[in-house]
């Protein structure tokens, strides 16, 4: 679901983001830092750790998006690993869509690997890292 109130400035850009809020029943009930099992279904290469972070999401290329679409959001990140992350979003993203997750001082360019609907207007998005340097290239 999308919270309509603006929730802060996106780092370095003169625009606002909208915060994606997730129903409580959807959130994982595991303590931060718990190592989650990597199943084949998840297509994961590295163990992931649960977390309760908020990241700024900037969608670079979205298959369903056009020039008018919102591209900046604040999203809850539920787990991270060496090669990827997982966050909730209010709309579906599609395989190979490209995006940037900004965790404050750190930002990384990712590509969507999988998307799973977990509730009405709530999708769990699994992404894998594309570029790990600090100067992220925003060119899709």
């Amino acid at each position: 679901m999308l919270e309509k109130q603006f929730s802060g400035r996106f780092q370095g850009m003169n625009t606002f983001t909208q915060r994606v809020v997730v129903p409580d029943y959807v959130k994982h009930k595991v303590p931060d830092g718990t190592v989650l099992p990597a199943t084949m279904k998840d297509s994961r290469r590295f163990a992931r750790r649960s977390c309760d972070l908020t990241a700024h999401l900037e969608i670079l290329t979205g298959w369903m998006l056009d020039d008018e679409s919102e591209r900046l959001f604040e999203v809850p990140v539920t787990n991270i690993s060496r090669s990827g992350a997982c966050f909730f979003h209010h709309v579906q993203l599609f395989p190979d869509d490209q995006l940037i997750l900004n965790f404050g001082k750190l930002d990384r360019k990712f590509q969507v690997a999988r998307c799973r609907r977990v509730a009405d207007k709530c999708f769990e998005i699994g992404v894998h890292v594309m570029a790990s340097d600090t100067s992220v290239d925003r060119t899709p």
Partner: peptide, 9 residues
Amino acid sequence: YPVGCVGQE
């Protein structure tokens, strides 16, 4: 699968 979309989605 792969997403679990419903109905008119």
